[in-house]
């Protein structure tokens, strides 16, 4: 093979790789959205920014802990990757059903997370909390809407009983994709747009 041909083969390989990796990312995420199950996670949005990917709201989840009696056995697994099996509570929100060290075989409703820390629950004698870090905590928004979204949440938060913010997350076999963030029954970008219109 001449040097020129070699360069063209290398170029073609490079082009294919550069197209394949983003395409694979898309297929992987689409798969979770199409075949996975949707769970609702109670959350609170905050507004930071990323230099390349734009503005997003950081989701801080309310139910990222599990109260358990065998908490001390988990202390050795701090910072480890774990698999969280989910179920839906009576109000329709996601709840951690069980923690596994390897992917469970009997269900697809689980995702991979990090066991952030383990600590004793003083209000529940003999029990302790397992605190997890979820792999999804960003929801990207149009730059003009990320700030107001946080503000809207804060203002709504003054009447806590009437406010409901949750993220719709598709979960399937270890993977999770945040599809939408809802504020009082409306997708958050629509809630912000409605608010901006009113002003």
């Amino acid at each position: 093979m001449t040097r020129n041909n070699l360069i063209f083969v290398a170029f073609a390989a490079m082009v294919l790789l550069q197209l394949f990796v983003p395409a694979y990312m898309i297929v992987e995420q689409e798969n979770v959205i199409k075949k996975g199950k949707a769970f609702k996670f109670r959350t609170a949005p905050i507004d930071p920014s990323d230099p390349f990917r734009g503005k997003y709201i950081t989701l801080s989840f309310e139910d990222d802990r599990l109260l358990t009696a065998d908490w001390q056995a988990w202390e050795a697994h701090e910072d480890a990757e774990v698999y969280l099996e989910l179920e839906t509570d009576s109000a329709g929100f996601a709840r951690i059903r069980q923690v596994h060290l390897s992917p469970p075989a009997h269900t697809q409703d689980y995702f991979r997370a990090t066991l952030y820390n383990v600590y004793e629950a003083h209000q529940h004698p003999g029990m302790g909390y397992l605190h997890f870090r979820f792999p999804f905590n960003r929801f990207y928004m149009e730059e003009s809407k990320a700030g107001p979204a946080e503000q809207l949440y804060r203002e709504a938060g003054r009447q806590p009983d009437s406010t409901e913010v949750y993220a719709v997350v598709y979960v399937r076999s270890g993977k999770a994709v945040v599809a939408e963030v809802m504020l009082n029954g409306l997708p958050i970008k629509e809630a912000v747009a409605a608010q901006q219109k009113e002003e």
């Binding site: 983003p22 990312m25 898309i26 390349f52 990917r53 999804f136 929801f139 990207y140």
Partner: peptide, 20 residues
């Protein structure tokens, strides 16, 4: 960079800055 950051945006991929 713009291609993979836009895909992260579309699917709300949270991955750390270092992995990006």
């Amino acid at each position: 960079g713009s291609c993979i950051s836009l895909i992260s945006q579309i699917y709300n991929i949270s991955g750390s800055m270092s992995s990006f």
